[in-house]
Design a protein around this nucleic acid. Structure first.
Lengths: 158, 158
DNA sequence: GGCTCCCTACTCGGATAAGACCTGTCCGAGTACTTGAGG
DNA sequence: CCTCAAGTACTCGGACAGGTCTTATCCGAGTAGGGAGCC
């Protein structure tokens, strides 16, 4: 899986934690997490295209959350970065398999292998869709109550 | 996801369908599905290493099922081809994030993002582990009852 | 002093290279069958 | 005719290139703020 998924999740959480009235630039976000700025910018653009962030160009510009965290699921983040394609793609090799020249078409029904793999992938997607970033944030704060405070302090300091 | 997963599943099913007393060579399997023989051989070697197939070298050699299909889950197949690594790997970027220099270690607890992603991936793995290749085969035969018959005929013919 | 205009600095956005993994290929080690000679 | 042994053909196994996607980078378009000039 793409590494940008992790970056995107942490950036979205941070943007909510600091809750600034002005957008935050790629430069500050990259400096905060010690990430390569241009590449992080690329991932952020993907989030903008997916509608999770809004961007304001020009000086004093940057990125802002497009909607509250309880309206953003992990599925949204993964889809924004990885794209909408399924991980397992059926190439219908059975149609090139033995019996491909048989007069009766036994391969008109859906491929059972593909069906089984899709069921598993659907379970994954559902588990992702059931968890919002607000849930993740709450879990993080449950383990480290002073986390939000520290992040806001960093935001004021720098 | 690796394309070899699909190939492996179909090959394992075929080996059970024809139920030959002699092993089947890479050449025949590749010819049957119109796949590049050397590359298919590579995937089959992975299945041997994972203990799903047994190989007999030399002339008249080939591959044989190591155990019945109801003892092989889709999880086994995916793990054999893709390896045991998780799709989402947490790089702990929060430790390089804001507050990394804070005296109090707020990051000693597990990363909430990682925990959430692991939950989703666990759902995927469980769904894979719950489905055996025998189930998949039964589903295929339910849609196409004459499939096994055709495959055995192909096996006798060639 | 206040307003206007221009200039500078900064930031997003997309187009552009380097690296890693998946895909595809080749050749050597080993085994079973075949075939010929010898008893 | 039977036995035996060498040769041969075939197959697995691992080592070796090509292609595509991820990772990383750079530069141009556009905007906000600041400062100088003018009224």
């Amino acid at each position: 899986m793409n590494e940008g998924v992790e970056w995107a999740a942490h950036v979205l959480l941070l943007l909510d934690w600091v809750d600034s009235d002005r957008p935050m630039s790629t430069t500050r976000l990259a400096a905060g997490y010690e990430l390569p700025p241009p590449y992080l910018n690329k991932q952020l653009q993907a989030l903008v295209r997916a509608g999770l962030l809004t961007s304001t160009p020009g000086a004093r510009g940057g990125f802002r959350l497009a909607r509250p965290l309880d309206k953003i699921t992990l599925m949204d983040v993964v889809t924004a970065i990885e794209g909408p394609d399924e991980a397992f793609r059926c190439t219908e090799i059975r149609r090139h398999g033995p019996g491909r020249d048989a007069p009766e078409r036994v391969y008109d029904s859906p491929c059972a292998v593909n069906a089984a793999m899709r069921r598993a992938e659907l379970a994954w997607r559902q588990a992702l869709a059931e968890q919002t970033l607000a849930d993740v944030q709450a879990e993080a704060e449950a383990h480290a109550p002073r986390l939000g405070e520290q992040l806001r302090a960093w935001h004021e300091r720098t």
